[in-house]
Design a protein around this nucleic acid. Structure first.
Lengths: 212, 212
DNA sequence: AAACACCTTAACCGTTTGGTTAATACAAAA
DNA sequence: TTTTGTATTAACCAAACGGTTAAGGTGTTT
């Protein structure tokens, strides 16, 4: 056939190897962390030769950094979306909590991954944070300050409130193994428990800061 | 001198080498995690020969387990102390939060250590938890249920309340690097921030559950 | 068809790793 | 004094590790 070329199905899978590596590396790094991950295991999971890892990403460290950056960026981008929604503060908190917990459950490995790797190497994230998360936080911080001065919520240090909100959303996902043992839950009970939190947490927060 | 033996100064330092190893291993495992820690680094930090590690604790895994168990046990023991104190629920929460945050700050590496290592190997802790933390939790859970049925606090799933309390205490210590970047705090500001939380968190919780 | 650029592989390499061994020091027991 | 059990060390080892190399494959350009 002389029209073989034309008949070829969509070609934009060219980078499939790189993507294969990236996805496999993600999974392995999530499970084992930077230090615990093995290049061979990543290669096996991607179904390709180990040398390819070094062809596309020069070193283990660089491969890890590529993933860590992408994960953080994507995650903080979604975080910003949630915070920038235009709602009165109390509604915004409700909206945020519900969707943030949802987002965390769909990426349940990310909290431990970030907390753990930042603990082992706090410097890594510095550049990532500047201008990305700080600006988002400033907006939220301003919202709270305004609400306090308008008497919509009781006086509270905005930083403490933000940390409280994050803590209530993130901790139960990060500490899942501890919680399931402690509360003697199986996987289904845990999922249901988190599902209930979507309403419970925002009620808990709003109850605490609203002025009756 | 024929009374040499009698004159010898207190002998109970015999296990000093084992303790030296144990302490050094603690520090290194806390910093690097199980996978990231190197036996040579532990030996260097203890100031002894690497072979001694294997003499006292057969393998890296066994050394790690010894430390992980001791850390968890000691930590949960103190946790139980705090929960078993005899006070009305709201006072108990206030007492607990203040002292728990204090305890966490004095062992600030433990939350990430436990969360991270449980994530990488959830099975490890199973035996540790049974009978230790579960019984403690049962008491607290009972206290809350009673308080709800007596109308002292608003109706709330006791499990959710416990998780909320733990989250508000543990998360800011576990996620320290993230918080300090986000809030643009230095070490002193962070310490002060946590110090303020001791009052703020219990106020936050009690505000949310008390019946006016 | 030759030249070129990119992808892929098997085999290899130097180093680091957890772990072992054989020899030694040393104090208490016999 | 000899024996015995414990503590300690330097030297060593096999396996695993991250990373390299040299060669070949494949489609595109000239």
């Amino acid at each position: 056939m002389d029209n073989k070329k034309e008949l070829k199905i969509d070609d934009n899978q060219d980078k499939s190897t790189e993507r294969l590596i990236f996805q496999a590396a993600k999974d392995v790094f999530h499970r084992k962390g930077l230090a615990g991950a093995r290049m061979q295991e990543i290669a096996d999971e991607a179904g390709i030769n180990k040398a390819m890892l070094h062809y596309y990403f020069r070193t283990k460290e660089k491969l890890f950094e590529a993933i860590f950056n992408e994960e953080c960026s994507g995650f903080f981008a979604k975080l910003a979306e949630l915070i920038n929604v235009d709602l009165p503060l109390l509604d915004k908190i409700e909206f945020f909590v519900e969707n943030y917990i949802d987002l965390l459950m769909k990426n349940s490995y990310i909290p431990v991954f970030i907390i753990s790797e930042m603990h082992h190497n706090p410097e890594r994230i510095k550049d990532l944070f500047i201008d990305r998360i700080v600006s988002v936080k400033h907006k939220f911080l301003g919202d709270i300050t305004t609400a306090v001065s308008l008497g919509l919520i009781r006086p509270i240090d905005p930083r403490q409130l933000i940390v409280n909100i994050m803590a209530l959303c993130i901790f139960p996902i990060a500490a899942r193994p501890m919680l399931t043992f402690m509360m003697e839950m199986d996987d289904n009970e845990y999922t249901e428990f988190i599902e209930l939190r979507k309403k419970e947490v925002s009620k808990f927060i709003i109850n605490s800061i609203k002025i009756n």
